[in-house]
Structures are given as C-alpha cells and as structure tokens.
Computed example of a mutant assay.
Amino acid sequence: MNVKYLSAILASSLLIFGCNSDNDDDVAVIDPPVVVVPPVVTPPVVVVPPVLDGISIDDASSVVVTLDTFNATTGSLLFTVANNDGEALIDVANYDIVYFGFPDPASLSIKPKAWKRWHVTQSYQCDGAGSDSCSGTLEATDTAGKYTFNVSDLDLQSKASANAAMIYKVAIQIKGSLASNAIELISAD
C-alpha cells in the first residue's frame, strides 16, 4: 500500500477521533429528575351524633334482652334491649339483675354431691322511682337500645366455699309498663 494513502487515512482518523477529546467544558450536566409526591389527603372526620330513635320501654308490648359482653370479674355488662320486631327500646330504668356463682363441674370436690348443688348470688334492682333506690349503675350508650351496667361491690367468691372454682352467670330482667323480658341465665365470656 502506498505511504501517501496510509498517511492520509491516519490523518483523517485522527481528525475524526480527535474530536472526542477529554475536554469536559462543553459537557451538559443532567440533574436527576425531580419526583413530585402528591400530598396525602385524609378525609374529614365525621362526628355521628348519638342515635336517639327508638320506642320507649313503657310503650313496648314486648321486651327482648341480648347480652353483648359480660365481665365476670367486674360484673360489667353491655346489653341490647329491643322489642320482638328488633326496634330499639329507650328510657330503660326498671331492672332486676342477678349474678350467680356455680361450682365449676370440671373441678374436684371432697363432697361431690353437696358441692354440685350450691350456688351464690348477688342481686341489683331498680324500680325507676329514682336513682337513690337503685343498686348498680345502668347507663344508655350512644346507640339506641344499648346499655351498660356496672357495679362496684360484686363479690361472689367470698360467699362461696373456700378455694372453690366457680363459673359465673347473670340473669337480666328489664321491665316496662306493658311488658318485660323472660329471664334466662347467661354465662360469662
């Protein structure tokens, strides 16, 4: 090959590759893209007023009580009062509530026949005439027909045999002018 051609090829390749020098003066710096995070929108808090709709207990021709929770240690109850149609009953004031302690059938006893027959009770009543004649505290919740009942002096264990293992039950009777519910024993949670 001719030296002239080789020199020309070498010179032209230097010109072509020489344009990509290491001079960074003209290099554009690209910043990383800016990511815009949309703000978190929380919905406004809606305060629901208590439901006051319901039928007065004194106008109800039927009363049905459903126990929602029963804490045997404290005696606190949460229950629902409605009529046979499921409509909430309000203005509940008259009640008889009895707590029962029975021997635990799974526990052993030195006197098995006598052991299985005993029970202890503690009663609370209110005739609706005034809070002074009421024992225990019955309060309506924010939901129509739901009530809490609390006592401060429930002590079934001291009335039972020493070291007796007990199961706890409660009987609730709510009274209206026209009707009251059937009494049944309900076990603790």
Rank of each mutant, 00 (worst) to 15 (best):
M1V: 07
N2W: 06
N2Y: 02
N2A: 07
N2I: 01
Y5L: 05
L6T: 08
L6I: 11
I9H: 02
S12H: 00
I16H: 07
I16N: 03
N20C: 13
N20H: 15
N23P: 06
D24T: 13
D26C: 11
V37P: 06
T42V: 15
P43E: 14
V45N: 05
P49V: 00
P50G: 03
V51Q: 08
S56E: 12
S56I: 01
I57A: 04
D59L: 15
A60K: 00
A60I: 05
S62K: 13
V64M: 07
F70G: 04
A72D: 09
G75T: 01
L78D: 06
F79I: 14
N84K: 14
D85G: 09
D85W: 10
D91F: 09
A93C: 03
I97Y: 01
F100I: 03
G101N: 03
D104F: 10
A106K: 14
K111P: 00
K111L: 12
W115I: 05
W118D: 10
W118K: 09
H119F: 15
Q122L: 04
S123C: 08
Y124W: 04
Y124M: 11
G128N: 08
D132C: 13
S133D: 03
S133Y: 06
L138I: 08
A144E: 01
V151A: 01
S152W: 02
S152Y: 01
L154N: 10
K159R: 06
S161N: 05
A164C: 14
M166F: 04
Y168I: 09
Y168F: 08
V170N: 06
V170I: 09
A179V: 05
A182L: 12
